[in-house]
Each structure stands twice: as C-alpha cells, then as structure tokens.
Amino acid sequence: MRPVIGGRLLVVGYWWLVVEQYQLGRDNVLDIRNLQARVAGNDILKGITLTVNAGEVHAVMGPNGSGKSTLAQVLAGNPVYEVTGGTVTFDGRDLLALQPEERAQAGVFMAFQYPVEIPGVSNAYFLRSAYNELRKARGQDEVDPLEFLDIMEKNLTLVDMDPAMLNRSVNAGFSGGEKKRNEILQMAVLRPRLAILDETDSGLDIDALRVVADGVNTLRRPDNAAIVVTHYQRLLNHIVPDFVHVLSAGRIVKSGGKELALELEEKGYDWLEAPAEALA
C-alpha cells in the first residue's frame, strides 16, 4: 500500500470513521453466528453465519436437504429442532432463549411451507387472537371484533382474498394457493419486523405466486426485513432480493447479489456442491 501522509491521511481517516459509524448505526435486525442444529439425531445446520439489516431482503437458496427450511424453522422456534451451537441475536435480544410465541410477539413471523389446518377455529378469531397477543406484549390495548374487521378489510384486498374466508376454519379445506395467501394475510396483519418465508412458492401456480409476491413487496419497508427461503429462482423474479445465499450441506457456500439467483437457475446447484471445508 502506498504511504499516505498529512491531510490526506486525515481525510481518509475521517471517511473511514464515517463509514464505520454508518456501519455501526445500521439498523441490525438479525445476527446469526455459527448456528448449528439437528433433528432426530442428524446434524442439519453446521455453522450458519448471516447478518440481516433493516430494509433488506435475503434469499436463501439451496438443494433439497441443504438445511434452508431447517434454518427457517429454527428461527421460528420449532421445538422439533435442537440447537446445538451458535447464537442468534434479534434486535439485540437472544432469540434462541425465547419461546415461539415470544419470538412472534417480538416481531418474528414465519410463513409455513405447509400451513396447518385448524378445523373449528375461525380464521377471523385466530387472527384477532394473534393480533391482540402481539398488542398485549407491546403494552397496547386489545382491539374488539369490529375494530379488527376494519384492519382486515385493507389487508384482504392486498392478498385478493374473499372476506368470507375469514369465517371459515383456519386453512381447513383451503386450496394450496389459498393457504399461502392466508399466510401472507397473517403476515400483513401482524406486520413483523422480520418475515421468514419458508418455501412459500412451492406448489403455487403463477397467479398465486404473483399474489404472494405482491403482498410481500407491498409490506417491504425500510424498518423491516425478510428472509425468503426458496428452491427455485422464479419467486425472485417477483421479490427482488438484496442478497442471495446458497446453502449446501448445512453451510452457506456462496453469497452474492440478486444475479446469483439467475446463475443458479442457469447452472443448477451442482457446481456449488463442494462443501465449505475447501473455503475454510
């Protein structure tokens, strides 16, 4: 490096400070460090490190069995998965120490790959209960059914959903597309700080995919963030990510911008299968 002297050093030093300040001041949402997890005795995540800041959308891609869905489940707190190492900090809090409901109350939302059917509980009641639990956790008053209907109306339009769906049991008898829309509806109503979409695009036709993507795009704000877990690139034509990470065998083997997704679409995952040991 060329020696730098005098005023120029000061100027560079000043800019370095500004950049560093800016970095520190970045609104960090999620900080995953060396996360490891297993299910049924099998190690799935083998050291994931990932930082997500406000305003960013991160796509997590990878072949079947790479651990991308596990990452989503672990962040949401699915008790089936056992965390064996690493840390996850969410808005400065130790996320792994929180129960699933506490994570939701803190602002984490995961859209399920397979939304669960709950016959007997209406969609409206379920959503209002969730909404009120979140408000209570933030020290706000609960809303009554009428106030809640107002809130719902706007959000129903967003996901192009018939209001009659609110009176039906949660996901019971819904088509695949309806279930995914219902997930996005929940997301719209609960307005999470961090949204995680766990292969929301799987099994969707192009119209349903567009509705889901439009919903996510509309909800994109400078103060929230999203992790989009997907197997296919096509969702990313509609939800344009800021970063793309490729998982293989429980590790991030490559990160890049949105163009990485296109490269994966073209070349498949095989060229990345070389595990991270080579890089380490």
Partner: peptide, 29 residues
C-alpha cells in the same frame, strides 16, 4: 397435535391459550 400447537404459538398465541383453543377446536369440528 404438536404441529398445530407450534403453528398457533408461532403467531404469538401463548402455549396455554393455544392448548385451550385446540381443545375447543377438536369439539367444534
């Protein structure tokens, strides 16, 4: 159903309430 319990909790509904609602839902069906 543990999966349904997790689903409800992941939406912010506490464990106790989730259990109660699922019990009700079992009958409501």
């Amino acid at each position: 159903d543990e999966v349904a319990l997790f689903y409800m909790k992941s939406r912010g509904i506490g464990a106790d309430m989730a259990r109660k609602l699922l019990t009700y839902a079992f009958a409501a069906g």
